[in-house]
């Protein structure tokens, strides 16, 4: 055996191992990711275009799409402001109880969506803590839009903050200090220095939060009450049609959500690519000295 081959053997897997690993890994991904994705669209178009179009051009489906969009519309701004505030406090300052705060922000990732739904049912439901008071003032929270917005806020609360904290920690606070020493006000510093530096991370967090907000099922299911045409988001609509053995209808709506997932993945990949390019630019070797 030649020396070069021996070196290669020691530093890389033999060819058959590479082929085997590639086969196993890609096969796994095919069966668990690609096939389900194809199946969504396959089932949706199983009986042709017209049946698909008809399934979507249905008042209940359209109202479900509208409700899904309005939930996201209410949830995202809150998420954005909270994420920015939390990341600013955590990344740029030192204070006691910081790691506890970070754990608390992570909590919604760990709690089962069903438990989240139940928790808000216990507070705002008819027998809940605020139930009687809300009923007396004719405010509907549970089995109505407000309840669905609140549970979705709970579920998506970590996304933006989780993206921004490590990013802002890595960037440090020298640029902000420089801006202040040059006479910028707090707002000018934030708008001209901080925001441009974190814009991609912010967008990344919002994309993830949006996907989750539009797709959340368990928690919303508990507090929605499943009132057709009123409190059904798109995922809930999918469930109802599926349980009624309306496969084409269910998969037509599901295909809309799958499309949303694909757009999310695309946007995420683009943002990731932009972020990676910027970090590479920052890490690039200094060019040689010249005057």
């Amino acid at each position: 055996m030649s020396g070069a081959a021996a070196v290669k053997r020691a530093l890389a897997e033999p060819r058959w191992v590479r082929v085997l690993l590639l086969g196993v890994g890609l096969g796994f991904l095919f069966f668990f990711l690609a096939l389900p994705l194809l199946a969504v669209f396959g089932e949706a178009f199983a009986t042709g275009w017209t049946a698909y179009a008809k399934a979507l051009d249905d008042p209940e489906a359209l109202s479900a799409i509208g409700l899904t969009l309005s939930v996201a519309l209410f949830v995202l701004p809150g998420n954005l402001v909270f994420g920015l505030a939390a990341a600013w406090a955590i990344a740029k300052f030192d204070f006691r109880g910081k790691s506890l705060l970070i754990t608390l922000i992570d909590l919604p990732f760990a709690v089962s969506p069903v438990v989240v739904g139940l928790v808000f049912l216990l507070i705002f439901g008819a027998q809940g803590l605020f139930g009687p008071w809300l009923a007396a003032h004719e405010i509907k929270v549970v089995f109505a839009l407000p309840g669905m917005i609140i549970v979705t806020m709970f579920i998506t609360c970590p996304f933006v903050a989780r993206e921004l904290i490590p990013l802002m920690q890595a960037q440090g606070k020298e640029e902000e200090e420089a801006a202040l020493s040059l006479g910028a006000t707090g707002w000018q510093m934030f708008r001209r220095v901080t925001l441009p530096n974190i814009k991609w991370g912010l967008m990344y967090g919002v994309i993830l939060a949006n996907a989750r907000a539009m797709g959340e099922f368990g928690a919303v299911s508990v507090v929605s009450g499943h009132i057709r045409g009123q409190t059904n988001t798109l995922p809930l609509h999918v469930e109802i049609l599926y349980n009624e053995y309306n496969a084409v209808g269910a998969f037509a709506s599901a295909s809309v959500l799958a499309l949303l997932a694909l757009v999310t993945l695309l946007a995420k990949t683009i943002v990731e690519w932009r972020m990676r390019r910027e970090t590479l630019m920052l890490k690039a070797e200094l060019p040689p000295e010249k005057n």
Binding site: A178, A179, L180, S181, G183
Partner: peptide
């Protein structure tokens, strides 16, 4: 920001 001090940071802190 009101001191009218020019500060050059160790790692420059360029934007």
């Amino acid at each position: 920001r009101d001191r009218k001090v020019g500060f050059v940071f160790q790692h420059y802190a360029l934007f």
